[in-house]
């Protein structure tokens, strides 16, 4: 089946926790922003889910565990796992319980300031097995590229990829209300099967590591038939990039972002190669047992050297 990219917002709050949006108001605002899907993640509550009836876009029904030692998404978990007795040293068993309920686990804004400024907002859990974590919000809030905690989250993510954990990167606006948003076009793009996005396809894309986080443009790459989340043989390959401003044009904001360079990143955050967005094909030698992702850098609202977008990795097999 054909795969398509869909623009999504992965972190939303409603009146069922501390958001200002009604459920229908959130969905309407998402439609106005040309989003194809959202994930509702109210703090410690699932009561918003019952109000999602025949929505015009895909709505993934989840919860944000707003605990004392970190905030964590339990995505589409069918089992009621108690967030209240999560402690720094039992988080692995809590995450296992979420998986047993069919859910995926996402670490939210790991370097946000915590208690008392934002209660529990800092990730203070001692995760023993990071393979229990499906995704990590390496970008949070409405102005991602200017955010110090996001730089630290990116470093943590690289460190975990280096250790062999395949964690999917996401952006979460932590959307509570419209007013404080700066960059309406920022989103997480998910690569999904089918011509209409569904909540289960969103979940699958996150599980399989097929995401791009972006200030607006859709930016991705493929190596032959293989793309983000896939595992391929090491060796000589040709890598091909795609860049699209289609959604930003619909939102009438394409001029805010000017891509200047594509960087291919691997283990240790090493920049393997730089490519001009004007020449989107290049030869590359991939090492075995590694990960490769792409970053798009350029100018945002006149500010130079900004990270505009980054992709999930593509992985290489262990031995040649």
């Amino acid at each position: 089946m054909n795969k398509k990219w869909y623009a999504c917002e992965m972190h939303c709050h409603t009146l069922h926790s501390d958001g200002d949006f009604s459920v229908s108001g959130l969905i309407e605002t998402a439609v106005a922003r040309h989003l194809d899907g959202i994930q509702i993640t109210d703090h410690n509550a699932v009561s918003a889910h019952a109000e999602v009836i025949d929505p015009p876009i895909a709505v993934l029904k989840s919860i944000e565990w707003t605990t004392y030692f970190g905030h964590m998404h339990a995505m589409d978990c069918k089992k009621d796992v108690d967030w209240r007795d999560a402690l720094p040293d039992n988080i692995d068993e809590k995450m296992r319980a979420v998986h047993e309920g069919g859910g995926l686990v996402g670490v939210c804004h790991p370097f946000q300031l915590g208690t008392p400024i934002c209660t529990g907002g800092r990730w203070d859990y001692n995760v023993k097995d990071w393979s229990l974590v499906n995704y990590m919000e390496i970008w949070s809030e409405g102005c991602p590229f200017m955010n110090t905690p996001n730089k630290r989250a990116l470093d943590l993510w690289h460190t975990l990829l280096d250790k062999g954990y395949r964690i999917t990167p996401t952006f979460g606006r932590d959307w509570h209300r419209s007013t404080k948003d700066v960059y309406h076009s920022a989103c997480t793009y998910l690569l999904c099967e089918g011509d209409t996005l569904t909540d289960s396809a969103m979940k699958r894309a996150v599980n399989e590591g097929r995401t791009v986080i972006s200030m607006g443009p859709l930016f991705s790459f493929n190596i032959g038939e293989s793309t983000l989340g896939d595992e391929i043989e090491a060796g000589e390959h040709e890598i091909e990039f795609t860049l699209s401003f289609e959604r930003m044009e619909k939102m009438k904001v394409p001029e805010r972002v000017k891509p200047e360079v594509i960087r291919i990143i691997t283990k240790g955050g090493e920049r393997v190669k730089e490519v001009s967005p004007a020449y989107p094909r290049t030869a590359i030698t991939l090492k075995a047992n590694s990960w490769y992702n792409a970053e798009l850098w350029g100018t945002i609202d006149g500010k130079r050297d900004c990270l505009i977008a980054l992709t999930s990795p593509l992985y290489t097999k262990g031995e040649i």
Partner: peptide
């Protein structure tokens, strides 16, 4: 459920046919 918001005075109802947000 839970009412996770900042208000320091709150009233919540839980019934068969209705429940306060959260």
């Amino acid at each position: 459920g839970c009412a996770h918001r900042q208000a320091e005075c709150m009233e919540h109802i839980i019934s068969d046919s209705f429940a306060s947000p959260g």
